[in-house]
Design a protein around this nucleic acid. Structure first.
Ligand SMILES: [Mn+2]
Ligand SMILES: [Mn+2]
Ligand SMILES: [Zn+2]
Ligand SMILES: [Zn+2]
Lengths: 138, 138
DNA sequence: CTAGCCTGTGCAAAGATTTGCATCAACAAG
DNA sequence: CTTGTTGATGCAAATCTTTGCACAGGCTAG
């Protein structure tokens, strides 16, 4: 029940999204990764599940919209995905050499929404990523 | 002298980069834009200067590395570029409908570097972008 | 369980961005 | 001004990501 996949599936169902073999496989891969991964990387790790790369791109996008998966960005712009692991919205500190990453919980959500409201903006979201070179790669 | 293009050019020279007609044209376009623009958009605004799109991509990347241009990201992952306008590092609040943007000076640079150092990371950088729907587009 | 609706999928094509390589030209030295 | 070095450019191709469309299959109603 607290298994991230099971939880994700029930949320997807609640939101009216369909549960397919492909989506289950994609979530499976995501749950095994220990750092955020890209759509291509996810697809490469799908073993028997032969699922089209396009489907991986589209499914991950859906998962983010449904709030069951968190979206990040690599320094080169590549989008990466990971489970929220119960914490929901968060950020990452990613090594630009090896891709390893640490969770960063500091966030300016409130200040940013305040500023945005000041300019009359609505439906405010934000993306933040921190990059560096990890101890192993130094 | 305080003209952003002139200033950019002298910095590029200092850093050993060459000043070409193409680069001057790209900077020119950048100085006229009132929001951050992508490489493709920059290329589309180059008028007589017939310069290859690849050159725009590569030049903008160089400008960022040299610190004369600031890099941002749109919500869909597209990289966008703008002059620092004398303020250096900063962020943007961008309308996801029309692309208009406001400058955001709030920044967690110090906290983030502190956290990163805590994990033993070096050469720390970060990207942050805020998105919403502007008053005109609501 | 079955039928039907409508989302999700695969394939193909378009679009965006990066990379490789031969040639060109900025600029420093003489 | 002439020359040589080396970074910058353009073209072509590879790579990555999105989009269009017809068909397949999950899910709900009966
Ligand atoms: Mn945040
Ligand atoms: Mn900042
Ligand atoms: Zn590393
Ligand atoms: Zn707008």
């Amino acid at each position: 029940m607290s298994d991230p996949i099971t939880k994700a599936i029930s949320v997807l169902r609640e939101k009216g999204l369909r549960i397919t073999e492909q989506r289950k496989a994609i979530l499976e891969v995501l749950s095994k990764a220990d750092s955020p991964i890209s759509a291509e990387e996810n697809h490469a790790m799908l073993v028997a599940s032969q699922c089209d790369l396009v489907t991986v791109y589209r499914s991950l996008e859906q998962f983010v919209k449904a709030g069951v998966v968190e979206l990040g960005v690599r320094e080169n712009g590549t989008k990466v995905y990971c489970f929220g692991h119960g914490h929901g919205h968060h950020h990452h500190l990613t090594c630009r050499m090896c891709g390893d990453s640490e969770r960063v919980d500091v966030c300016m959500k409130n200040e940013l929404e305040e500023i945005a409201r000041g300019y009359g903006y609505q439906e405010v979201t934000h993306v933040m990523e921190v990059f560096g070179v990890c101890p192993s790669c130094s």
